[in-house]
Amino acid sequence: MKAFISATSSISPVRSFGVEKDLTQFNEEEVGYLKAIEPSYRSILNPKMARRMARVIKMGMATALDCLSSAKVENPGAISIGTGLGCLEDTYKFFKQIDDSDEGLLSPTSFIQSTHNTIAGQIALFIGCENQNFTFSNRGFSFENALEDGILKLAEGDDDILIGGIDEITSESIELLELLNCSGKINNSEIPVAGEGASMFMLTNKPDNAIVEIIDIECFFGDNSNVDIISEIEELLNKNGLSEEDLSGIVSGANGLPNDPAFYKSIAGHYNDKPVYEFKKLSGEYFTSTAFGLHVSVDIMHAQKGIETININDNKEGEFKHLLLINNYGNQYRTLILISKP
């Protein structure tokens, strides 16, 4: 069973969306974390509709519509969205109304938009897509669950599956994320820098318009402290008829912190002849950051050009044939995704 990506779209803390893409340009707002650069939604969404939508829904809608249009797909075979924390802004709004009014008479608007599947539901509603519509909210595997679901859907005979990973930060959520040591403000050097964003992909079983082929995905749940990552990667490559020499580079989810899982260092050490790109320098850490990691990987593969600002060594590659994306969240979730030039 073959799975290809025919289009991507991403809103992130760097200029990844729209015509003037530049993954080296950061959001200049000084908010203390990696905040997404949002496009002007005017040309993308009906302003009346956009006013009612929280940022996370707008980011999701904008990237979904962009992805559909690049892929020239009107009605996807399914929609699968991963979001670790869902619609935080609306959740908090309703939450606060309950507290402030001591459970008084409330407007249902923010409650209605607070459910995790609002993003996937709104996309379906907007484009009139009656097909399967799933939302995964599974910590560091939220996007991975959606990606696997999309590949499964292709195997079941459907085509053009829209998948994505989305999370937003709010002023309340960053405080709690920091309290829980998940991620925090830039000035906190102990924990990963918090980030946010939305990345969408169109999966297809047709190689014709593909920009990347997804060769394999593996997700490991459990303690990541003592992992023999090099053997794990070797096994993955062998399983797919490849060897170490075939790898053009690594896209790594290391946060560049002393307490990153040790396997990141093993990778940097072992693959010292290949470029290693650390995508979280651009996106920050969040539950669905793998989605942005995949966006970066597809971008490198499609452009056949590395992103030097995030390359941790001086290695350059003339041709990108196979890339390995590796991510870790909270030392519990480990993901390997192998992609190739179609």
């Binding site: 995790h116 939302t135 669950n145 749940f221």
Partner: peptide, 11 residues
């Protein structure tokens, strides 16, 4: 259980 986890949240 080490066979992987999935969490679905569709209301």
């Amino acid at each position: 259980s080490k066979g992987g986890t999935i969490t679905i949240s569709t209301a």
